[in-house]
């Protein structure tokens, strides 16, 4: 049985999230539900039906095709468009609607790919990775929900001298994730907040496991670690937060971090999934001056810090 994982996006020529020019591979499924998430289509474990209003002609062929009665017509902004009952839709495996949609307004995000098939795509850019010192970065979703798959790809790339980076939220079982942790040359580890209750409020889960995993990584693989610190309005947009984090990371012997200021670029995706944008302080911006001050605070704690975004 070949190894496979659900992939919901592959982006080539990426310049962020690692050295050189990279290919980003997004794996589906995440244990957290962060309110500011910019890849909401990657949260659920299975493929997601997306509907793009701008492409839809309102022909309702999808309604006629649906075998579950999951599509109804509704009038929105003066035109008739399909309204999808997500619960019914997700239980369906036939997806007759997709074939009948003439405009591509309905599209399924996420498909199972074997390691073989994914590697065939990645292999084509090995010259590019060689020339630029780049490689492959796994993101998601949470890629470490598929540790064997990640380790498999990383091993194949390793044979060409190409490195693999993993971006993770830290919410996973240590033993299960071990092969991928071992195979990755670098781990971007997200640290949202230290308060367990606040963490639960903004992400749906407390942070005990995350902190325990981070501490253990700090002890065993400190050189691979870069800590990603999202700066989210209402959650982590204070100087005290930066000081607190700085002290903790320095205490654990972690040396590198990056600040990721809040953006709304994923907001349009929620509409395609039929969901409301969940982040409530979403209209607030992070002042650039605050980001600089937070960076200074972290540097004072002895860390090397970049600002990405």
């Amino acid at each position: 049985m070949p190894r496979s994982a659900p992939v919901f996006d592959i982006q080539s020529l990426a310049v962020h999230d690692g050295e050189g020019l990279r290919t980003l591979v997004f794996l589906q499924g995440c244990p957290l539900r962060c309110s500011w998430c910019s890849n909401p289509e990657g949260q659920a474990a299975g493929p997601q039906m997306r509907w793009h209003a701008a492409k839809c002609s309102g022909c309702l062929a999808c309604r006629d095709a649906c075998t579950r009665g999951a599509v109804m017509a509704e009038v929105r902004d003066g035109r008739t468009v399909p309204a999808i009952d997500r619960r019914l839709c997700e239980a369906c495996r036939e997806r007759a609607c997709l074939e009948r949609c003439p405009t591509g307004a309905l599209a399924l995000s996420g498909r199972a790919m074997t390691a073989e098939a994914l590697f065939k795509i990645l292999r084509q850019d090995i010259r590019l990775y060689w020339n630029t010192g780049g490689g492959v970065t796994f993101g998601g979703g949470e890629p470490l929900l598929h540790p064997d798959f990640v380790a498999d790809i990383a091993g194949r790339l390793r044979a060409y001298g190409v490195g693999t980076v993993v971006e993770t939220c830290g919410e996973w079982d240590w033993e299960a994730a071990a092969p991928a942790l071992e195979a990755a040359e670098r781990i971007y580890f997200d640290l949202k907040t230290l308060g367990p209750e606040k963490h639960r409020r903004f992400t749906g889960r407390p942070n005990e496991t995350i902190l325990a995993n981070l501490k253990r990584l700090a002890e065993t693989r400190p050189g691979k670690m870069i800590i990603s610190l999202p700066v989210i309005p209402g959650l982590s947009d204070t100087l005290e937060h930066a000081r607190e984090i700085g002290a903790l990371l320095a205490g654990w012997g972690l040396r590198r971090a990056r600040l990721l200021p809040y953006h709304r670029l994923g907001i349009g995706k929620y509409e395609t999934l039929g969901r409301a944008y969940p982040h409530r302080s979403g209209d607030r911006d992070v002042p650039p001056a605050l980001v600089v001050a937070m960076q200074d605070a972290l540097i004072s704690a002895g860390l090397t810090v970049t600002v990405d975004g």
Binding site: G20, R127, N131, T132
Partner: peptide, 22 residues
């Protein structure tokens, strides 16, 4: 614009051109 920021972005652009032309 955000893709090519800074001297690292410039280097990546140049590396891309090199890879295309080689």
């Amino acid at each position: 614009p955000s893709a090519l920021r800074g001297v690292d972005g410039s280097r990546k652009l140049l590396q891309l051109i090199r890879t295309l032309f080689e």
